[in-house]
Design a protein around this nucleic acid. Structure first.
Lengths: 214, 214
DNA sequence: CTCTTGAGGATTGTTGAACAATATCTTAGC
DNA sequence: GCTAAGATATTGTTCAACAATCCTCAAGAG
């Protein structure tokens, strides 16, 4: 048994959440879910802990766990932190190891290829890799894991996006522009472009969230 | 009972670790600690998970949990992230709410008062509050908690410092300089000063760690 | 009618135990 | 002295029972 029961249960719940079967705000009852999945409450709670760590669900003392509801304020905050971490990466680009700089260019290429194929799901994944690579220029393990967690949180908001293409398409070329500014050593302009970039993306997501809520 | 048992136990262990009662590298035996604290192994493991999440302890599979040993590479990384978060705060200072800017000035005053009293322990605490306030200028809850965790990790390294006075004293006036640059709207100079400030502090800690290790 | 109060029921929190899996220590053999 | 097999101790996983807490909803006071 390579994976523990708790890990398998967590994977099942993760899939259900990301597939929309368990919408944000849903309470995950220990007894009902445990009976449903044929496991004890304690094992289920262990699975919950894994999901809590990924912030896919939240735990309220004596209340239970609920599928995370991402508020507009959360999106605003996530983009604030992203701005701080990715800006730091851009400022570190000049002294970053070649391998890290190559990762940025690679993600740009992958996004372009996926866009040519019309695979907008994959464009989204490549976009996330691009931004992770930007933050990764700092060469900091702690920044890497923080970035991973932020992007995992953001995925919860993507459910609100009606058209993946309309959201991702404009950013393919902007990613390329950013990468070229970095390669050209124009770090100040790159940082400025990154700031407006993130502001635009945030606005798009917030608009989509408002639309779904209404 | 506002806090769960696991949370209270985690607080106890956190205090013991920071007070030096549980030095870095100590193994936290489940059976012995559980008997000592009068709680079940299961609850203790829950408390461990909280501390693991704060990276005050590390978990090695089938080996147990140990009080975190901070390597020089960790200190370097922590200062990288601090630089990113505090720089973001300084850049946000211009548009930050007055209450957040006041918190920065307040911490400077408290440090100066403690220094006059010769209470170098308290100078250290005020210094941490100063830096937390700097990062707090971003107004981001996620940055606040990230900063708290970083500073808690860093405290693990402070055990290596032989003379609190020699470490903290020079920074009292530098904090004041930084705060005045911010109040004067000279954000670029403030950011530059912050960078050299953090580099100097990092160097001091790394030197002390090397000295203790040898 | 609104607000408080307090059972009662439902849900989560905690415990101790049993068994499995793994690492470490001990010992026998070469 | 070194290696390998077995013994021992510790952690990992799961379970069911009991304790603590929250929420609902009805009864009563104002």
């Amino acid at each position: 048994m390579a994976l523990s029961t708790a890990q398998r249960v967590a994977a099942v719940l993760r899939d259900r959440i990301e597939a929309g079967g368990l919408p944000p705000g849903t309470q995950l009852s220990e007894e009902a879910l445990g009976r449903d999945l044929g496991i004890s409450r304690n094992t289920l709670r262990e699975a919950f802990r894994l999901l809590i760590h990924e912030s896919l669900v939240v735990h309220r003392l004596n209340r239970g766990v609920f599928v995370r509801v991402l508020e507009p304020a959360d999106v605003v905050d996530i983009y604030r932190v992203r701005s701080a971490l990715e800006s730091a990466g851009v400022r570190a680009a000049a002294t970053a190891p070649p391998a890290l700089r190559a990762a940025v260019r690679e993600a740009v290429g992958e996004a372009a290829r996926a866009a040519a194929d019309g695979d907008w799901q994959e464009v989204g994944s490549a976009d996330l890799r691009f931004h992770r690579a930007l933050a990764g220029l700092s060469g900091s393990p702690r920044i890497d894991t923080a970035m991973d967690r932020l992007l995992a949180e953001l995925r919860l908001a993507f459910h609100a996006m009606p058209s993946p293409r309309r959201f991702h398409e404009p950013f393919v070329s902007r990613n390329r522009v950013l990468a070229e500014l970095l390669d050209g050593g124009e770090h100040e302009r790159a940082e400025a472009e990154l700031t407006t970039y993130l502001d635009d993306a945030r606005t798009l997501i917030l608009d989509a969230m408002r639309e779904v809520a209404s």
